[in-house]
Design a protein around this nucleic acid. Structure first.
Lengths: 199, 199
DNA sequence: GCAAAGAGTGAATGATGGTTCAATCCTTGC
DNA sequence: GCAAGGATTGAACCATCATTCACTCTTTGC
């Protein structure tokens, strides 16, 4: 024998793989999913089109991972912000502020992650994204119910509905590129009422 | 001259056009937007593929009309149900019950109208659909605020958030084909709280 | 019945863009 | 240096449909 995969090569391979995912994310942030042909992503990553298929069996698999990565980053940021707060009311405010602040920072990406028409296989990943948010929030809601800060309710349903409300309220502003000054405070009020936070 | 469009022909044309729209709706209700190739729709309507283009310049135009028609029907049904009620609380309950009842009756169609990945040009029509719901609800909310039944709030934002919550809460059940027995009542409770309906 | 012109047809066309693969380049161990 | 194999390339391939168009069928007014 004369060739055997070595650490150095493995590292280069995984670096290359990551560069492709990062490039896909950047192209998506710049031109939406619609602008993400495999050729465009490959060029942005500085590899040949065919090389993408060394790492991902199909385009859908690549973008499933892109969505997973980006979603995780978003959920983590939101979770980190909420973890600093003590009451459910504050935690949920932090969720909304962080979510919408980040979305407005990269509206194209946020739109792609939330609502842009994508391949059905990638769409499935979107549901995971939304469920991750819902589960994060459901935890806070459940704690709030247990401590008596919130009235009795189904934390899962509350969280799901809350994610829907948040996403829907942001789609308009995302299309416009900015939110009106009262959008975020109004949304917080709405959601505090929905949770049953005592005034 | 020897041929001139006559009433009889005009009627046949518009009947044919309607049959195409109806066929598209049926195919969509059966196999989702994904199953709606122009050929499949044409066959279902009993016309040749090319004939579709006698009535619609592009597939996107056809489905824009399909979405518009179906959405109008849904919004009308919801509006009719809500109009029979006196208080905002009852009106909104009627909206939720009618919306989710109809969605669960034709889950494939509801999924296509609400969330399935479609051509971006058709997606635009979806926003109109959601805005129509939001405006209907905003009217009730505004009236409730004016009469003092609801606390002060931005009716437009409340309605938008409410539509998002409703849609999101239904996506899971639609995928499963049924809603858990407590989904609808829980959702009504959530939304009553969100509106600030006094208990 | 007939000529004119619109309506209807459906196989062929064409655009798009994901996927493949023969050729080439690198890396490895000796 | 070299042979064995893996990695990389990117132009060619191909599948999918939306769209077209040359042709046929109907309708119309005379």
């Amino acid at each position: 024998m004369a060739y055997r995969s070595t650490e150095r090569v493995k590292a280069r391979l995984s670096a290359s793989r990551e560069r492709i995912v990062a490039a896909a994310l950047e192209v998506m942030a710049g031109h939406g999913y619609a602008g993400c042909s495999v050729a465009a992503v490959a060029e942005h990553a500085g590899v040949a089109t065919g090389s993408v298929y060394r790492h991902f069996p199909t385009k859908a698999d690549l973008f499933a991972e892109v969505f997973r990565t980006a979603s995780q980053r978003e959920v983590d940021a939101v979770a980190r912000a909420a973890a600093l707060r003590a009451t459910v009311a504050e935690q949920v405010s932090a969720v909304i502020e962080t979510f919408s602040g980040r979305a407005l920072q990269s509206p194209r990406l946020a739109y792609a992650l939330l609502a842009e028409p994508v391949d059905p296989a990638v769409d499935a990943e979107r549901l995971v994204f939304r469920r991750a948010y819902a589960e994060l929030i459901a935890g806070y809601v459940a704690a709030g119910v247990a401590s008596g800060e919130l009235p009795p309710q189904d934390p899962g349903l509350t969280a799901t509905a809350l994610v829907g409300a948040l996403a829907e309220a942001m789609v308009g502003p995302l299309a416009a590129g900015v939110a009106g000054p009262s959008t975020i405070p109004s949304l917080i009020m709405f959601i505090h009422r929905a949770l049953g936070v005592s005034p």
